[in-house]
Computed example of a mutant assay.
Amino acid sequence: MSSTQFMQNATIHLHRHDLPDDLALGGTVAVDTETMGLLPHRDRLCLVQLCAGDSQAHLVQIVPPSLGGRGADCPNLKRLLSDPATVKLMHFARFDVGILQHALGITVSPVRCTKIAAKLVRTFTDRHGLRELCRELLGIDLNKQQQTSDWGAADLSAEQLSYAASDVLHLHALWERLEGLLVREGRLDLAMAAFDFLPARARLDLLGYENPDIFAH
């Protein structure tokens, strides 16, 4: 199935500044981010995408005060992302946790990372990107054409919103497949320990311990 076919049945909600007060997304929420680049100290957080595992994506646009927005003044989003009772599903959580912790001043936990899970059980390949995993495990072909577009624009295009939503709409199904593989291979406990370390790993990255890595020889 193509991503376009899947998105025809999806609903995208765009929220400026924060999540609605009355929105409930359950105990496990898929999370992704879009930024101006890959350096948290330089590149601002522009969009946070969330999905409860249904066909609805909630996109929170973080608008800086210089553009008439509220910046990190998003209490509902912060509460959800830092809630210890809410599991956050991510792909490449090391980056997303880092940018969220830096931009919003919170600790993002607990976390599950489909990229780490894939690397622990799919050792027969080096293809652990979200697009490859969705294609091989779910039979869904994601469209990545908007990956490098300008996420800092005041008005995001329909194509950008669709792309951003697609990155969270499949994470619940993907995690279900990968969790089963972790159990099958006896590596779930190891994965959970790695997930628990992610907030600290992100803090180390933000402090400059990414290169050289303190865990390297």
Score class of each variant (00 low, 15 high):
94 R>E: 13
58 H>W: 08
106 I>Y: 09
47 L>S: 05
74 C>Y: 09
81 L>A: 08
95 F>L: 07
122 R>W: 07
133 L>R: 03
44 R>P: 12
60 V>D: 13
107 T>N: 10
87 V>K: 04
112 R>M: 07
67 L>F: 13
91 H>F: 02
57 A>V: 07
71 G>W: 07
78 K>N: 02
39 L>T: 10
87 V>P: 00
108 V>W: 02
119 K>R: 15
58 H>P: 08
119 K>A: 12
102 H>Y: 15
95 F>A: 05
50 L>A: 12
107 T>S: 14
78 K>Y: 00
39 L>P: 00
96 D>N: 04
44 R>A: 14
83 D>I: 00
72 A>H: 09
113 C>Q: 02
132 E>C: 00
88 K>D: 07
42 R>F: 15
114 T>L: 08
58 H>T: 10
126 D>V: 09
72 A>M: 02
104 L>Y: 09
121 V>F: 06
105 G>K: 04
83 D>M: 06
114 T>C: 11
54 D>A: 13
132 E>V: 04
138 L>E: 10
52 A>N: 13
67 L>V: 12
139 G>W: 11
86 T>K: 03
124 F>V: 04
135 R>F: 05
89 L>E: 06
142 L>Q: 11
63 V>E: 13
67 L>A: 15
79 R>F: 00
64 P>R: 09
101 Q>F: 13
41 H>C: 00
99 I>H: 13
116 I>R: 08
120 L>H: 02
131 R>E: 15
44 R>Y: 12
53 G>I: 06
117 A>F: 06
135 R>L: 14
129 G>T: 14
42 R>L: 14
94 R>Y: 02
114 T>W: 02
123 T>G: 15
112 R>P: 00
88 K>V: 07
48 V>L: 12
84 P>T: 01
71 G>L: 09
67 L>K: 14
53 G>N: 11
104 L>N: 06
142 L>N: 11
79 R>N: 06
101 Q>I: 04
86 T>A: 03
134 C>E: 01
79 R>Q: 14
62 I>V: 15
83 D>C: 10
104 L>V: 07
50 L>N: 08
131 R>P: 00
61 Q>M: 03
50 L>R: 08
41 H>D: 01
140 I>S: 10
133 L>S: 02
85 A>E: 13
130 L>F: 05
69 G>S: 07
109 S>I: 03
87 V>T: 15
91 H>K: 04
117 A>R: 05
106 I>S: 06
77 L>N: 05
83 D>W: 01
88 K>Q: 05
37 G>Y: 07
61 Q>P: 03
38 L>A: 07
128 H>W: 07
44 R>K: 13
40 P>Q: 03
110 P>E: 12
42 R>P: 00
42 R>D: 11
138 L>M: 12
100 L>T: 04
134 C>W: 01
123 T>M: 09
43 D>C: 03
102 H>P: 12
64 P>F: 09
80 L>N: 02
63 V>G: 03
104 L>M: 09
91 H>Y: 02
99 I>Y: 11
122 R>N: 09
70 R>N: 11
135 R>E: 14
76 N>H: 12
126 D>S: 14
98 G>R: 08
110 P>K: 10
98 G>Q: 10
81 L>Y: 04
119 K>Q: 15
82 S>R: 03
93 A>C: 01
98 G>M: 13
48 V>G: 09
76 N>V: 03
51 C>S: 15
51 C>D: 12
99 I>E: 11
48 V>M: 08
68 G>R: 01
38 L>H: 08
